[in-house]
Amino acid sequence: MSATELGIVRPASGLTATLQHARHVITENPVTGVAFALFLVLILAAILGPSLVPYDPLATDSSASLRPPSAAHWFGTDQLGRDIFSRVVVATRLDMIIAVSSVAVVFAAGGLAGISAGYFGGWTDRIVGRLADTIMAFPLFVLAMGIVAALGNTVTNIVIATAVVNFPLYARLARAEANIRRDAGFVLAARLAGNTDARILLFHILPNILPIMVVQMSLTMGYAILNAAGLSFIGLGVRPPTPEWGIMVAEGAAGIISGEWWVALFPGLTLMGAVFCFNLLGDGLRDIVDPRRRT
């Protein structure tokens, strides 16, 4: 029995209600709180990182190469004597930009294609469905490699490649969610109210599937970072000396055997932390965005 039926409904209004609800979600599940804190750190690092770090991330110092972590160099230094901590922090911005823009692109393209497919059915559904199937037929990382290799080694192309490989996920999710709502009473009511199909899709159905899409977005953020780093790791995409987590892991990979573990470990850990944070964030966000949870 829900609280509504028992008549203990509390009027919720605007921002205060949202904040109260957010607080409830965080206190109920402390992991969400941790994820949000991590997210905040990532955002701050992305915005303020370059002006906060102690060393220039590109400045080499041959006298101080491959130093283990110390008070002067928290994460140690790499082969060229660059401060790894500074490089890890500065790299946040680039990695976040790639992740955010690829997710934004795929959300717009895949989400729209998916809800149209689910709502209209017929040919729209067939075309979107086969497109998604075609993309799914390739090993996704290999496909991303192919796209970047074919289009050229730029950040824009990494964004495009990451968006393309994620397209089926969004299209299918949005299709399934829109499909179960196409005959819902509120959609019929919207049609009676004079809404055209486009309006129904964008203003009636989309807001309803947004919570689940937000969860998906958060999860793919992690994947997008991983994908970008992976592409850089194998030499596609971002090029040295630009600080980027994937390249840094690649540069340090050889050193692990000879004992210089810190060169690869710290960028790797940061990468893992970021992916982890986005995955946890997904669950927390769903609870906050979904109005039905606010009872």
Binding site: A184, G185, F186, L188, A189, A190, R191, L192, G194, N195, T196, H204, P207, N208, P291, R292
Partner: peptide
Amino acid sequence: PRHPLRKRIQMVFQDPTDSLNP
């Protein structure tokens, strides 16, 4: 939906929950 007669024919649905956008 774009026809001028649309607003003159309206409907009350069976399930009040299902017919309101959540």
